[in-house]
């Protein structure tokens, strides 16, 4: 059964995950089509970040199925490295490599993991840094960059692997409003170019603007889903309404 582009790029079915006695995911089911931008929102501690980590096998799941391009992630024989080459991820705390410059951060994985030609990679890395508007920071170390700049380098670093889908884990949560904006603009450009994106976010305005579909999670379950207009205007579930009333 070969995967074709008309099938969901990511398909989660009844995903369960516990840490010790705490069940963080209690049966999550949704899918992401190619080119789609999906936002997952919900109160802190509702398992959103864990959900993203399950998709690229950073966290193993207990029950259920996650398929990325038709390949089962919940499979002991899974080639994790092959999966992670297709799935890019950006973290809340940027997690750039502090001993490498911005350019080196972007170049490292394509050279070492994909074994691509250094010259080619360097050219592409410069292009990616220009894309995130940091071409003049190529030789800066992460410690010399602001939070927003670091996060944009992290996005470029992830893009350098040419992933099929990007996972964003509350990437603006640690930023101040101004730097937040630079990062969100970058992500929106990506989305407009047709990159498949799955975002965990607290940026309601951004979600409303960019997302094709929004999932609201609470207590390890998806409570409500829908396209942004519908979701924000007429949420049905009382918990969703309460959450939105606190945030908006």
């Amino acid at each position: 059964m070969a995967w074709t582009a008309d099938q969901p790029l990511i398909a989660l079915v009844d995903v369960h995950k516990s840490f010790g006695k705490t069940e963080v995911l209690k049966g999550i089911t949704f899918s992401v089509a190619k080119g789609e931008v999906i936002c997952v929102i919900g109160p802190s501690g509702s398992g959103k970040s864990t959900l993203l980590r399950c998709i690229n096998a950073l966290v193993p799941i207990d029950r259920g199925s996650i398929k990325v391009e038709g390949q089962e992630v919940n499979d002991p024989a899974l080639d994790k490295l092959a999966l992670r080459r297709k799935v890019g991820m950006v973290f809340q705390q940027y997690n750039l490599f502090p001993h490498k410059t911005a350019l080196q951060n972007v170049m490292m994985a394509p050279i070492q993991v994909l074994k691509q030609d250094r010259k080619e990679v360097e050219e592409r890395a410069h292009r990616l840094l220009r894309k995130v508007r940091l071409q003049d920071k190529a030789s800066s170390y992460p410690g010399e960059l602001s939070g927003g700049q670091q996060q944009r380098v992290a996005i470029a670093r992830s893009l350098a692997m040419n992933p099929d889908v990007m996972l964003f884990d509350e990437v603006t949560a640690a930023l101040d409003p101004e730097t937040k904006k630079e990062v969100l603009v970058t992500i929106r450009e990506l989305a407009e170019e047709g990159m498949t994106c799955l975002l965990v976010t607290h940026e309601m305005g951004f979600a409303r603007e960019v997302a094709h579909r929004i999932h609201f999670t609470d207590g390890g379950r998806i409570i409500e889903s829908g396209p942004p207009e519908e979701f924000f205007a007429k949420a049905k579930d009382p918990r969703t309404r309460q959450f939105l009333s606190q945030i908006l």
Binding site: L81, R85, F91, V113, A154, R157, M161
Partner: peptide, 25 residues
């Protein structure tokens, strides 16, 4: 641990993570 996580997410092998990312730091 976040360094390890982000390196894993970039599909580095464990050996590469140790030699290229952890030890130099």
């Amino acid at each position: 641990a976040a360094q390890l996580e982000s390196a894993e997410a970039l599909a580095f092998t464990r050996r590469q993570i140790l030699w290229q990312i952890i030890l130099p730091q």
